[in-house]
């Protein structure tokens, strides 16, 4: 997920120097589902974890503009072009609110971007897969935005106020994206044989990476318990993944497409779909930066940032000149 903990190591315990009464008061507020605001006292580990989670989410939105941006120029109708442009623009907007939410914790956008570009910060593994046909734009909206919603709806009640409020805005737009993606899939699944083939091929390629978006299985997520206690995570990875499968499989059936999992079957007793084993070796490789187009994604981001430096410098220089002219006039 955009927000999944991609750190394999358990995080360091709370520093012993923090006064116990502050910690207790903080924990009690969080347990009572109160929002923590930027000026409130918070444990250093909470702050660190949040910066990591929110900035990773922001980076995911921004890197996520690339695979879809890849198809704006080739969108097959004017309406599809407009919808895709608006969608990718929304994702940039999500990145912007999320960077702003993370900045309230005392880390600047530049520092976060620097961490992304040096590989210190992560972003969702899903964006390291290529968009090969127009059906991929449908599949991303349907599956990737669909998975993002499942993860983010609970975060509207997350304990950190600015993050929760950002999620409210983001979630509204993500459900639009999901519907638009599904509509593209519908059009193609009911289209010509070639379109149907593209739709099935897109599902074949995006299904497993979408399940991986929910992150490692619960028994390999050492920080889940603490994140849940802090209310910065509200469901476990496996719970969310199961929910996604349960919701999505009938949608695939409705499209007349086949989910690429021979072990998939509905379990009458549990009321859930059982599904096959995820290739966790692939997942950890992608986390490490070895996804099929990870190099392209980082190359594009770093290039945009480096080549934009003169523009940012010029804007700052002009603003400074304006400021001093105004001061001189006063």
């Amino acid at each position: 997920m955009y927000t999944t903990e991609l750190q394999k190591q358990p995080s360091k315990p709370v520093a012993a120097t923090e006064p116990q009464e502050l910690i207790d008061a903080f924990e009690a507020r969080v347990a009572a589902d109160e929002f923590i605001e930027p000026k409130d006292w918070m444990p250093a580990a909470y702050r660190r974890t949040l910066v990591r989670q929110i900035s990773q989410h922001a980076h995911s939105e921004i890197v996520g503009m690339l695979p879809e941006g890849n198809w704006i120029g080739r969108a097959p109708s004017l309406r599809r072009k407009a919808v895709l442009l608006a969608k990718v623009q929304d994702e940039g907007g999500h990145g912007l609110y999320l960077y702003a939410a993370a900045e309230t914790l005392g880390t600047s956008r530049e520092e976060m971007i620097e961490a992304l570009h040096t590989g210190k910060a992560k972003y969702s593994t899903i964006f390291n897969y290529p968009t090969l046909t127009w059906a991929d734009i449908g599949a991303i909206g349907w599956l990737v935005d669909g998975a993002a919603i499942m993860n983010q709806v609970p975060l509207q009640r997350t304990s950190y106020g600015p993050y929760a409020r950002a999620m409210v805005r983001v979630c509204k737009e993500e459900s639009f994206h999901q519907r638009q993606g599904y509509e593209i899939m519908m059009c193609m699944a009911n289209g010509t044989p070639e379109q149907k083939e593209m739709a099935q091929d897109a599902l074949d390629r995006w299904w497993w990476p979408s399940l991986m978006m929910f992150g490692p299985p619960d028994d390999e997520s050492p920080n889940t318990a603490q994140s849940m206690r802090w209310r910065i995570k509200r469901d476990t990875n496996d719970e969310l993944r199961q929910h996604f499968v349960d919701v999505t499989v009938p949608q695939a059936e409705f499209l007349g497409l086949k989910v690429p999992d021979p072990k998939l079957r509905f379990n009458e007793a549990t009321g859930h779909y059982q599904f096959g084993e995820i290739d966790w070796a692939e997942f950890w490789n992608v986390v490490k930066g070895e996804g099929p187009v990870a190099k392209e994604r980082m190359h594009d981001r770093v290039k945009a940032w480096d080549e934009g430096a003169w523009v940012r410098d010029a804007a700052a220089a002009h603003a400074a000149k304006q400021h001093s002219t105004r001061q001189a006039a006063e």
Binding site: M65, G69, I72, A304, V311
Partner: peptide, 24 residues
């Protein structure tokens, strides 16, 4: 729209896609 995702800063990226969207 060739700029989309590649602009010097996010704010500019949003403005350019906004202009592109109006033009479409």
């Amino acid at each position: 729209s060739e700029w989309c995702g590649h602009a010097p800063m996010i704010e500019v990226d949003l403005s350019m896609s906004n202009v592109a969207l109006d033009l479409v």
